[in-house]
């Protein structure tokens, strides 16, 4: 679909170029930019509609370490808003003080995502949320205990009772609340968004050149597409890893080996280190990786291009990516109920 759209734009561009007019070049540029326009609404699933109460309750739970088995970590331990909802280590440390298998991905801009986790094994946020809470290496909780614990807390009792009058504190309601909160997490309005909205002076020329490289020569936008700079799909970008990623769930499918979900690039400068393993410490490393093209193997994405960048192009790409960050986390800590 997206490829076709690019082709259409290219065709229009060719058609326009025949007339060799500056305005047509601008039109192309505008069409391209429209690809990156931010949506003005958040869509919620029909079974989990938005309400400020649910979202707030989810936020409380998200920030509450009592959701872990040993009550020593909350969701924010690894999805820290101050680091673009990630944590600045290659692999987050779990409840048992042991590094996890993968780098913690951001929870920004997930409302529209069709699958979750680096390997895409969860299809809803609710489903996803259950994973870390109950995973022994991560938060190490079990829901009966957790529900019992929460029921001990009067305010949770009250709020759950009010928001979910039929069931009160249940696993499903906990996960719905967390997922609803997560759906409201949208990265902030960045300089890039201003530029897309038409403010030519919002970003530097270097960033603009970076955008051109990003969308053109480098072909980054083949996967990091749209306003969220992700296609939410799994790709093998040739990283050296033993992790099979999506391949775990399809051992027989060659093309799915070593595939990982394309992460958003929003607030990317907050989110180092990079990649599912967190082995690339800087964006330069990331760009350098793409210049190498990664490991040539059957699963490697066909979209990986063989490109080389000048130093300036690297700078331009980094400049561009920096415009995607809205540095203000724009988050207030929730007031959590005492025991």
């Amino acid at each position: 679909m997206r490829i076709w759209r690019h082709i259409t734009i290219a065709l229009i561009g060719v058609f326009s170029l025949e007339h060799s007019s500056v305005s047509s070049a601008q039109e192309i540029s505008q069409l391209l930019r429209d690809e990156f326009k931010r949506p003005t609404v958040i869509t919620f699933p029909d079974n989990a509609p938005y309400s400020p109460q649910v979202a707030t309750l989810g936020k409380m739970l998200f920030f509450d370490p009592r959701l872990s088995g040993t009550q020593n970590m909350s969701c924010t331990t690894c999805h820290n808003p101050s680091f673009g909802w990630e944590t600045p280590v290659e692999k987050a440390i779990g409840t048992k003080n042991v590094a996890l298998d993968r780098h913690a991905p951001t929870v920004l801009n997930l409302y529209e995502a069709p699958q979750f986790f680096w390997d895409g094994r969860a299809k809803t946020l609710e489903e996803q949320a259950e994973g870390p809470i109950t995973h022994p290496k991560e938060m190490g909780a079990n829901f009966p205990d957790l529900i019992a614990r929460l029921e001990q807390i009067e305010e949770y009792q009250y709020w759950f009772g009010m928001i979910f009058p039929e069931a009160g504190i249940t696993k499903s309601n906990i996960l719905t609340a967390i997922a609803t909160f997560e759906r409201t997490l949208i990265s902030g309005w960045s300089a890039f968004d201003d530029w897309i909205a038409g403010d030519e002076n919002a970003i530097s020329n270097s960033a603009k050149r970076g955008f051109d490289i990003f969308t053109g020569k480098a072909g980054c936008s083949n996967c990091h597409s749209g306003w969220n700079f992700t296609d939410h799909q799994l790709h093998d970008i040739g990283l050296e890893t033993e992790d099979l990623g999506g391949g775990i769930f399809a051992p027989d499918d060659q093309s799915r080996q070593h595939t990982f979900k394309t992460p958003t690039l929003r607030n990317i400068t907050d989110r180092a280190p990079f990649m599912h393993h967190g082995d690339l410490l800087t964006l330069r490393d990331v760009i350098a990786h793409y210049e190498t093209g990664g490991i040539q193997r059957p699963s490697r994405s066909k979209l990986i291009k063989d490109v080389k960048f000048t130093n300036q192009e690297v700078e331009d790409l980094i400049s561009f990516m920096a415009t995607l960050t809205e540095p203000n986390p724009n988050i207030k800590a929730p007031s959590l109920p005492p025991r």
Binding site: R38, P39, T40, V41, I42, T43, F44, P45, D46, P49, Y50, S51, P52, Q53, I186, G188, W189, N330
Partner: peptide, 13 residues
């Protein structure tokens, strides 16, 4: 949350 819908505007919008 006074009206129910599966869509809400983004905060910046």
């Amino acid at each position: 949350g006074l009206d129910k819908s599966n869509q809400i505007p983004t905060r910046f919008a």
